[in-house]
Each structure stands twice: as structure tokens, then as C-alpha cells.
Design a protein around this nucleic acid. Structure first.
Length: 480
RNA sequence: CGGGGCGUAGCUCAGUUUGGUAGAGCGCUCGGUUUGGGUCCGAGAGGUCGUCGGUUCAAAUCCGGCCGCCCCGACCA
């Protein structure tokens, strides 16, 4: 193997490794406009599997999908003060349409709260119209200064849920429920362990009363906000006049929520599970759960091997396993092994003449790279063997990532220990600081409050930064 | 927008110092060979050297303007 064919090892240069993996694993490519991304079929299939897992969960809570325009009147953005302030710097604005200067500039949606607010104001008259539970699968545009494939691009794909409720309690319940949906998805589908928490004032969504987040730790110890759920209170209801008559014939403002998870999550999967060999995809989301590499020399071997391959492929597919046969003629098996390991396929089946003879296959697991992860198993009951293996890999990935996160999360009480902790991971601390204090910590250490975990230990302690009595724990980290 | 680096074949880059017919490896096409951890041999296709202008008999190479990309900061799902 020539060195130049190799991937930059993750352990050597995490940043370079990430860029190379995205491109070489065939997930995505750069678009022609700076900061834009082309999602290739392999990456899009992964996204489709993410969509399916989320969509099923959304609908189970009563949510329906809808489509909303990507063009928003500029005036809508300006109706909610905090919202416009938050998004103004990163808006893409259309000023010409059909060759004519437009009377009012049109904004390409950076998110749809305002458009939703406009529609809900029209749709809602009575408490009988509530709640409204909608979700949009779309893309949004934010003119970011510094971009990175999947993690931050000018345009990205996501879902944005928008609900309207009669009471504050209901909106709060929905905000928490959707956070729980995200956490369940992340942990059980993507094998990405996440911390559920509340964002600090500084990190809160522009226009929200409260932003909930799931935070994950990447393989380099940095944090990635992987999904968010906002309680918007009555801010947008008041800005857009979303009102209803309650049973007592009193006019009331609605309480709204919004929640989103984007293709950024693909970045989370890459950076949580990947290794020096490349990508490792969680079996439940992987486009291909197993790839079959047929091996043969002579023509009669080829016939027998391909016959066995076709039979095994059919058996696995019948068992609901997503199978791909790599029958490319011009490449050696060794090349294919490396190729599929780079692309993160969770398991691999090799079928050669010896296997045909012994009614066996070589079965490799991606989470244990190289020959070590390979075993010879019988073709009898292979679908079950593979199903069990995939479940085992799914669990192992979650266990490994959880252990890594916990091993790199440190309870600290002094600023010196804090600075040390955030070099390699998260610092868990008592916090009583102000927004300005958080800003100073950021300037001094590059670490920010990722969240105040919902799961608080209780009791009280001394703030590591201000020395004041504190009643809550915060997770600090350097973030993407 | 500040600091740094770079634009030469699909990709990674050499060639620029000292101006003189456009190069290598990988990839791609064709033929053969090989195939249980990145086969080997041969033949071939492929480039207005980012762009505009200047100097010169002659510019990838020297000079100037512009454009673009990457990395580091400020901003962010």
C-alpha cells in the first residue's frame, strides 16, 4: 500500500482527517459557491435514514409535515426584536426579481418562525384550533463567514418543528418532549451519547425564552450542539398576533415552540465514531449495513462464488439487512476492504472458494478494524449472525463513545483545573456567573457554557470563577 | 473584515530563484496479468499554467491590478 493512498490519521490531525473522510467516503463535495455543499448519494442516503428515524418519532407525538416558502418578506424578520438582531448579520437578501428591483427586499429563510407566525395568526381563532403541531423538512440559508462541510455551510438541510399551544405549561411540555425525541434518536439510532440541558442566556436562540439542547462530545474532545428545542413563550405570538378565544371568550396569546436538527448531525456521527481508518457508521443508520466482497481466481471459482453471493444477499435482505455486493472486477479484495472501511460500513462479508467449499464466510466488524475484527462463520443462520453482530456493533459504538465522553469530563473547582480540563474535553462546574462572566471565560479560554444539564445533582457549591455560592452545575467546553 | 499561505492535468504536487517546445505520481481509457488486506506490465487520452494588463525577440517563470480558495481570529445550527 502506498502511503499517499492513506487517510491522514485522526490521531494526527483531526481537522484534516475530518475533511478527507467527508470527501473520500463520498458523503459530500464542495459546491461552486464558497461555503456551499453538494451532498452525494451515500451522504444523502444516510440523511434519509436519519429523516426516517426522526419523522417516525415526530408523527408518534402527533406532528404533521408541511411545506412553507423559502422567501420571507424582510418586514417579517423585523417584527421580533431579538430575532432580527440575532439573524440580521447572516441573512441572504433578494433585491431583484425577474430583472426588476423589488419594492420590498425578500429574505431567504434562515429559519421559519416568522413565516409560521404569520400563518398561525391566520389559522388560529379558537382554543379548539389548538394545538397546532407542524414540522418542515427543508433547507435554510445563513451567510456564515467560516464554513465546514456538514458542520457549517451557507445552506443546510434540516427539519424545523413549529407548535402553538393554549398554555405555557403545554408549550413547556412540548419543548421538553421534542428534546427527549432528539436524545432518544441520538442515543438509540446514532449511538451518539448526548447531554440534555438548558442553554445559557448568551447561547440562547434569538427570540426564545429558553433553549434546550443535546450536546455531544466529539472525538477531539470538543462539543457539538446536535439538536435544539426552543420555548418561544409568547414572543412570536405577540409579534405576529397569534391569538385565540379561550372557553371564557377571552382573547389570549398563544404559546409557541420550535425545534430543529440538521445535517450537522452527520458531522456528529463522523466525529463521534470515526477512527484512523475512516468513517464508522452506526448500523441502524448506515446506508449499507453489510457489504459482500466476492473473491475468486479461476472462472469456475467465480461461478460458484457469485452463486453463493447472490443466495446470501437474498437471505440477508429477506431478514431486513441493507446489503451491497461489491462486484467491481478491476479491484483486488484488499483494496475493497480498505475502501469500505473508509466508508464506514459496519460489517463486511467475504466469500471465496474456500468458503464455498466449507460453507462458511469471513465476517468482519468495522468497529474492530483490520484482521482482528474478522471471524469465519457458517453460512447456516448467517442472517441471524449478522443481525446479532449489527446489534452488538450498535451497542459497542454507544458504549465506547459514552466511556470516552465520561473519561474526558472532569469535575473541577479551580480555574487552573478548568483550563486543563477543557483542553481535552468538558469541565463540569458550579456556576454563578453572569453573562459577562461567561464572555470573559470565553475570551480567556475559548470555552463556553454548553449547557446546564437537566439532570442536576442538587445541593449547592462554590462557583469556580466568581467564588460566589452556586446552585447549579454547568458543562463547559470548546465548541464547533 | 484583520493575520498567514496558495492558485500549473480529475486529484496531490514539481517546475518560478537564474525567462527559451508543459512535467511526475495517483486516477481515467484500452490490452494483458493478478485477486483471502491498497496487484503488476504495456499503450493512450487529458492542461487557454486563476484572470487582465505590462516588460521582452521570447513569460508558468519578471512587474502591476483584479478574482478565487485554504488555514488562524471575530460571528454561528
Amino acid at each position: 500500500m502506498a502511503d499517499k493512498d492513506k487517510l491522514v490519521p485522526r490521531s494526527e490531525d483531526f481537522n484534516e482527517w475530518y475533511n478527507a473522510v467527508v470527501l473520500k467516503a463520498d458523503l459530500a463535495d464542495y459546491g461552486p459557491v464558497r461555503g456551499t455543499m453538494i451532498v452525494k448519494p451515500y451522504g444523502w442516503t444516510l440523511w434519509e435514514n436519519i429523516q426516517a428515524a426522526l419523522d417516525k418519532r415526530f408523527k408518534a407525538t402527533g406532528v404533521q409535515n408541511a411545506g412553507f416558502p423559502m422567501f420571507i418578506p424582510m418586514s417579517f424578520l423585523q417584527k421580533e426584536a431579538a430575532h432580527v438582531e440575532g439573524f440580521a448579520p447572516e441573512l441572504a437578501v433578494v433585491t431583484i426579481g425577474g430583472g426588476q428591483e423589488l419594492a420590498e427586499p425578500i429574505v431567504v429563510r434562515p429559519t421559519s418562525e416568522t413565516m409560521i407566525g404569520h400563518a398561525y395568526a391566520n389559522w388560529i381563532q379558537s382554543y379548539r384550533d389548538l394545538p397546532i403541531l407542524l414540522n418542515l423538512w427543508n433547507s435554510v440559508v445563513r451567510w456564515e463567514l467560516r464554513t465546514k462541510l456538514f458542520l457549517r455551510t451557507l445552506e443546510f438541510y434540516w427539519q424545523e418543528g413549529h407548535t402553538a399551544h393554549a398554555t405555557a405549561a403545554e408549550a413547556e411540555e412540548r419543548t421538553r418532549l421534542m428534546l427527549e425525541v432528539y436524545a432518544d434518536f441520538a442515543i438509540n439510532e446514532a449511538a451518539v451519547p448526548v447531554i440534555r440541558g438548558v442553554k445559557s442566556e448568551a447561547e440562547r436562540f434569538a427570540g426564545a425564552n429558553e433553549t434546550l439542547t443535546i450536546e455531544a462530545m466529539m472525538g477531539d474532545g470538543k462539543a457539538l450542539q446536535s439538536g435544539t428545542s426552543h420555548n418561544l413563550g409568547q414572543n412570536f405570538a405577540k409579534a405576529f398576533d397569534i391569538q385565540y378565544l379561550d372557553p371564557n371568550n377571552q382573547l389570549q396569546y398563544c404559546w409557541t415552540t420550535s425545534w430543529g436538527l440538521s445535517t450537522r448531525f452527520i458531522g456528529a456521527i463522523i466525529m463521534t465514531h470515526g477512527d484512523d481508518q475512516g468513517l464508522i457508521l452506526p448500523p441502524r443508520l448506515a446506508p449499507y449495513q453489510t457489504v459482500i466482497v466476492p473473491i475468486y481466481k479461476k472462472e469456475e471459482e467465480k461461478t460458484a462464488v457469485l452463486a453463493a453471493t447472490a443466495r446470501i444477499k437474498a437471505e440477508l435482505e429477506d431478514a431486513g439487512i441493507r446489503v451491497h455486493v461489491d462486484d467491481r472486477e478491476n479491484l483486488t479484495p484488499g483494496y475493497k476492504f480498505n475502501d469500505w472501511e473508509l466508508r464506514g460500513v459496519p460489517s463486511r462479508i467475504e466469500i471465496g472458494p474456500r468458503d464455498v467449499e466449507k460453507h462458511s464466510v469471513a465476517l468482519a466488524r468495522r468497529d474492530v478494524p483490520g484482521r482482528d475484527g474478522k471471524q469465519f462463520v457458517s453460512q447456516d443462520g448467517l442472517a441471524q449472525t449478522v443481525t446479532d453482530l449489527l446489534a452488538d456493533i450498535q451497542q459497542s459504538l454507544l458504549d465506547r463513545a459514552t466511556q470516552f465522553r465520561d473519561a474526558n469530563t472532569h469535575d473541577v473547582s479551580s480555574y487552573d483545573d478548568f483550563k486543563e480540563a477543557i483542553q481535552s474535553g468538558f469541565a463540569r462546574v458550579w456556576w454563578a456567573g453572569s453573562r459577562e462572566d461567561e464572555q470573559r471565560v470565553k475570551e480567556e479560554t475559548k470555552a463556553t457554557i454548553r449547557c446546564f444539564p437537566l439532570d442536576q445533582p442538587g445541593g449547592s457549591g462554590i462557583c469556580f470563577y466568581t467564588g460566589q455560592p452556586a446552585d447549579k452545575i454547568a458543562i463547559f467546553g470548546r465548541a464547533y
